[in-house]
């Protein structure tokens, strides 16, 4: 697997990110979907922590305690990392090329990516169930960052857990085989 034409798009909002060309992990996995209430809570927490100017105050009584727990877990790192970074690149494998896009919660390029999850499901289960490992592997491959960590907070108990993602490019190689086009005609 090779990554070319990496481009970081600073300051994009979510709609601008969605308009970027390329396939994201959630696009591959879910296609077009209507977010559930639980997903909306996660988005609100993300906004509150990473883009506070975009947080509209919804579910504040739930959002703030969850955000506090996550911020405590991230600690000093938050001031050394870029947040909500949109990236695009070409993933190349077996002579095929696929445009990829991802939106990364927190990144220090070349060193560390941190993905925040608000979920009742323990990571031991959800990494397999939702393929979080594949999602983070995509971010790491695209940005040539060796370490990806998920921090999860349970919205009910406010318990947290962390998982270091073992990168397995196999998932993305299969996606390139499925969605890629020959490199000589790729954009």
């Amino acid at each position: 697997m090779q990554v070319t034409k990496l481009k970081v798009h600073p300051g994009l909002n979510f709609d601008q990110y969605r308009a970027l060309p390329g396939l994201s992990y959630s696009g591959i996995k879910n296609g077009d979907f209507v977010p559930t209430k639980k997903m909306m809570l996660g988005t609100a927490v993300h906004n509150y922590i990473l883009e506070p100017e975009k947080y509209n105050g919804a579910n504040r009584e739930l959002v703030v305690p969850i955000a506090r727990v996550l911020l405590f877990q991230i600690g000093e790192l938050v001031k050394h990392m870029q947040s909500e970074v949109s990236v695009t690149c070409n993933m190349e494998h077996a002579g095929l090329s696929m445009q990829y896009k991802g939106r990364i919660d927190l990144i220090r390029p070349g060193r560390l990516i941190v993905d925040l999850k608000v979920s009742e499901m323990p990571l031991g289960k959800s990494i397999d169930h939702f393929g979080y490992g594949n999602q983070l592997t995509g971010y790491c491959l695209a940005t040539n960052t060796p370490t990806g960590i998920i921090i999860r907070v349970c919205p009910k108990t406010l318990n947290t857990e962390k998982a270091l993602i073992r990168q397995n490019p196999g998932f993305w190689e299969r996606q390139v085989l499925k969605y890629g086009i020959p490199e000589n005609i790729a954009i």
Partner: peptide, 17 residues
Amino acid sequence: MDLEFETATNALIAEAE
């Protein structure tokens, strides 16, 4: 700053592992 970031990163990796 590098020291602070790297220390926090390594602590986070250790916790995650």
